[in-house]
Design a protein around this nucleic acid. Structure first.
Length: 568
RNA sequence: GAUCCCGUAGCUCAACUGGAUAGAGCGUCAGCCUCCGGAGCUGAAGGUUACAGGUUCAAAUCCUGUCGGGGUCGCCA
């Protein structure tokens, strides 16, 4: 058990002793006071005050007077309607530093997930389209969620589902033959190339009924898997998939499996047939649909009137395939918030099919630009490759200026890490469910609440340790300054942050906790000497603190899918 | 029209899910490198939490309404 949990248990014991049978408090009743001068743990007395028909402030005073501090709690005091508990600062520092030193790269981890198997579906990109900043948010979020669940003791299967059929693909093939026949995109340019073709095709077919009919024919041929169009598709799809896989590698995604729409279409069709037989899917206006109006979910179209299948149908096949492959306890879909209804329809349909697994839609908000929504027509899409090279270039410039003696290779390597830290942190630092405005200028600034700031903090820690002639020591820990204690406190809450986040996927909380820790450390660093401290025992204690900070920030960043550097 | 989400400092976001004095970053202003990395630190200014009611010991948070922004609503995902 981590320190803070133990301390809370100690506080609970005292409360139970004071309250007797009147009320049995649990961990959720405890809070963290807004200010450290008010202690480390707080128990509000409003609820029990109401139950006992007593004034909460009086109750708090009574409770505080009734019991004497014990265990990790060294002091308790009533302040208004709250009972506040202070944790023994010395013991806290000692235990936290030892916990970090013992657990190392697993500090913050737990076994609460009991190895339950959780599927995390994310990075659902489309072939024949481009990859842009919106997808970056998806990839960053999915990766972080998977890592955090794993840290909480779940057995996680991260995987992607690639849409490589469907109307968009047909549209793109049509445009390819019409405008770019026989062209082959250069390696690394596949996504951008198809993005352009797709955009061109879309505007060309807009007012062209004949074109729409042609595209519909193409799609049907693709679904049947034969004919000239399928031949062409096999080639372009390979190119496109290579482009997507290059992005996955570049972004550092660990996907255990990549499902392709084209592979599961067959079983999807079968499921639709079964649904029709069972009467769950019905014929309506030429299409096959599932009527979900009574659940307030409208109508889910599975098969269009031209006979081709929609994603609602294909996702059914995918769900079944995943069930066969993994028998998960829980399934999480990381999908854009705009598809809330579609996801709800999918879950509802699966339920009607008899699916009993826990299904969750981890939805995330839309990414827009300061000048408004991205639009391929207006040419305001920020492509993955373009953004990353701009960030890397900017980081390289800064790095070069700081390290004139570094060769270009080293500069590029570090710049790359900084660039990824910047973009991933930017995507993860705000509440997933909220829309965000992606300001390229801000993401290039590398200051303040940013990934590079955290890398910088780690680098400073590493240099301190490297330059020191001593090793950190845990034997006799002396950290009396308030700056050091603030750092210890920030270290102590980290495990709870991870655990909580594994439950609600609010990944931004981890980003925030790391920033709080880094800020506390920066203040400590500016105010308190480490290597220049004359007293050896104090010096070695501070070194231990520095080591713990570096370790914890690194752990947290890794959960967010961010690598660190020793120097920058 | 129906339905869902959102509205907090000039800008971008927090606020432990109903708790104590609403906090950060950017930007602005004023300081800090003869101790370890200034991608940093310290401080200041900046708020009627869109508005109006209501619920209760307590509301940025819950309810109702108004205004404003966005998403979705039968063949694109």
């Amino acid at each position: 058990m981590y320190l803070l949990q133990t301390a809370k248990q100690d506080a609970l014991k005292l409360l139970k002793a004071a309250l007797g049978k009147a009320y049995t408090p649990n961990v959720d009743d405890l809070e963290v006071p807004p200010d450290t001068t008010m202690g480390d743990i707080a128990f509000p007395c409003f609820v029990i005050g109401k139950g006992l028909k007593r004034n909460p402030a009086e109750l708090a005073t009574e409770i505080a007077a009734k019991v004497a501090p014990k265990g990790l709690v060294v002091k308790l005091e009533a302040k208004g309607p709250y009972v506040n508990f202070w944790i023994d600062a010395g013991k806290m520092a000692e235990r936290v530093l030892k916990e970090v030193a013992t657990a190392k790269e697993r500090y913050g981890y737990s076994v609460s997930g009991k190895k339950k198997r959780v599927l995390v579906e994310y990075a659902n990109l489309n072939t024949h389209k481009e990859v842009h900043v919106g997808h970056i948010r998806n990839m960053a979020l999915g990766q972080a969620a998977a890592n955090i669940l794993r840290a909480a003791g779940f057995s996680v299967v991260p995987h992607a589902y690639i849409n490589d059929l469907g109307n968009a693909v047909a549209r793109c093939l049509w445009g390819y033959r019409k405008f770019h026949a026989d062209e082959k995109p250069e390696k690394g340019e596949e996504n951008a190339f198809f993005g352009e073709v797709y955009a061109k095709a879309t505007s060309a077919m807009e007012d062209d009924l004949a074109a729409r009919e042609e595209i519909s024919v193409i799609q049907r041929e693709l679904e049947e898997g034969k004919g000239e169009w399928t031949k062409l598709w096999k080639m372009t799809n390979r190119w496109s998939l290579n482009g997507l896989k290059a992005v996955f590698d570049d972004f550092g995604l660990e996907l255990e499996k990549i499902y392709l729409e084209s592979d599961i279409l067959k079983s999807s069709k079968k499921i639709v047939q079964t649904l029709i037989k069972k009467g769950i899917a019905v014929h309506s206006e030429g299409a096959w649909v599932v009527r979900l109006e009574d659940e307030g979910l409208g109508v889910s179209i599975l098969v269009k009137s031209d006979g081709t299948h929609l994603y609602n149908a294909k996702d059914l096949g995918l769900a079944q395939k995943k069930e066969e492959d993994y028998r998960p306890d829980r399934s999480i879909y990381v999908v854009d918030a705009r598809q809330k209804q579609v996801m709800a329809q999918l879950f509802a349909t699966l339920k009607r099919m008899g699916f009993k697994k826990e299904l969750e839609h981890l939805s995330y908000g839309h990414v827009s630009l300061p000048e408004g929504a991205m639009s391929s027509r207006k040419g305001t899409i920020i492509r993955y490759q373009d953004l990353m090279s701009a960030l890397e270039e900017s980081a390289a410039k800064e790095t070069r200026a700081r390290h004139e003696d570094w060769d270009e290779d080293r500069v590029a390597r570090v710049a790359r890490t900084i660039a990824f830290a910047a973009v991933k942190f930017f995507m993860l630092r705000s509440d997933p469910d909220k829309d965000i405005v992606f300001d390229a200028r801000e993401s290039l600034s590398f200051e303040g609440f940013s990934g590079p700031y955290l890398l910088y903090t780690v680098a400073r820690c590493r240099r301190l340790l490297e330059k020191s002639e001593d090793k950190p020591s845990l034997d006799d820990i002396r950290l009396s300054s308030k700056e050091a204690q603030a750092v210890v406190r920030a270290l102590a809450v980290f495990p709870e942050t991870v655990l909580k986040t594994a439950a609600d996927y609010q990944v931004s909380r981890v980003a925030q906790a790391l920033f709080d820790l880094a800020q506390a450390f920066s203040t400590f660093y500016a105010q308190v000497p480490v290597n220049a401290e004359p007293d050896e025992i104090v010096r070695k204690s501070r070194l231990a603190l520095v080591a713990a900070v570096a370790q914890t920030i690194e752990n947290g960043l890794h959960l967010l899918g961010i690598e660190t550097v020793d120097e920058m």
